[in-house]
Design a protein around this nucleic acid. Structure first.
Length: 196
DNA sequence: CATGGGATTGACT
DNA sequence: GTCAATCCCATGC
């Protein structure tokens, strides 16, 4: 696996990354929800161009973009598209796999559905913080890995991104349609579309 | 240097 | 349903 895998269009990669696993410090989960962000649209941090904050977004694909949200949470993104393009896939929810007890301790909650069902929750469960910003996601401390070749392709749901005010109409959110571990239910009109 | 705005979450009415 | 916590960083003076 090489970083070239992540050089493709961000919307395709956001869909593709559902089903991959993320592992860090012996704890891991399977990605069940993602969103795409691209410097051409104003919801993306990279919309403002290259700054100290967005430097990682414009850098080579396959690295982590971790930033602090609302002063409290760390949010984890996968930087994609070629160097010079500011784009990333936000990881919004995981299905817990390894280290579930550690996740419970870190989150102070028991229910498995509550451990990683949100972008701030999953970084807390995995203990991912800002110091990992810019780190390599292939050979680095955080490891991203593709699903088994034998893994079934699951129905996908597509919708609009959560929690943004600008470019809120773009259908750039992807989830495993029937997962119990997504960050929030789909609005009634939004759920039907499939892209298996 | 001061200000304002979040890609959220959990507690509370 | 409402709302506050809290910090990084871009922007503007």
């Amino acid at each position: 696996m090489s970083a070239r895998l992540f050089a493709g269009p961000v919307v395709d990669l956001a869909r593709e990354l559902v089903g991959w696993t993320v592992a860090y410090g012996g704890v891991s989960g399977r990605i069940v929800e993602t969103e795409a962000y691209h410097d051409s649209e104003p919801a993306c941090h990279a919309y403002v161009g290259r700054t100290r904050r967005t430097e990682v977004l414009f850098g080579p694909p396959g690295r982590a973009y971790v930033y602090r949200s609302y002063g409290i949470h760390a949010l984890l993104n996968v930087v994609v598209e070629p160097e010079g393009v500011g784009a990333a896939v936000l990881l919004r929810a995981l299905e817990p796999l390894d280290g579930v007890e550690l996740m419970r301790m870190r989150r102070g909650l028991e229910r498995q559905e509550d451990l990683c069902s949100g972008p701030g929750k999953l970084t807390q469960a995995l203990a991912i913080d800002l110091e990992l910003n810019g780190s390599d996601l292939i050979g680095g401390p955080i490891r991203l890995a593709p699903p088994d070749r034998s893994a079934d392709r699951v129905p996908m749901a597509v919708g609009t991104r959560v929690g943004i005010t600008k470019a809120a109409d773009l259908p750039w959110r992807f989830c495993e349609a029937e997962s119990r571990f997504v960050s929030r239910p789909w609005p009634p009109g939004d759920r039907a579309r499939r892209a298996a």
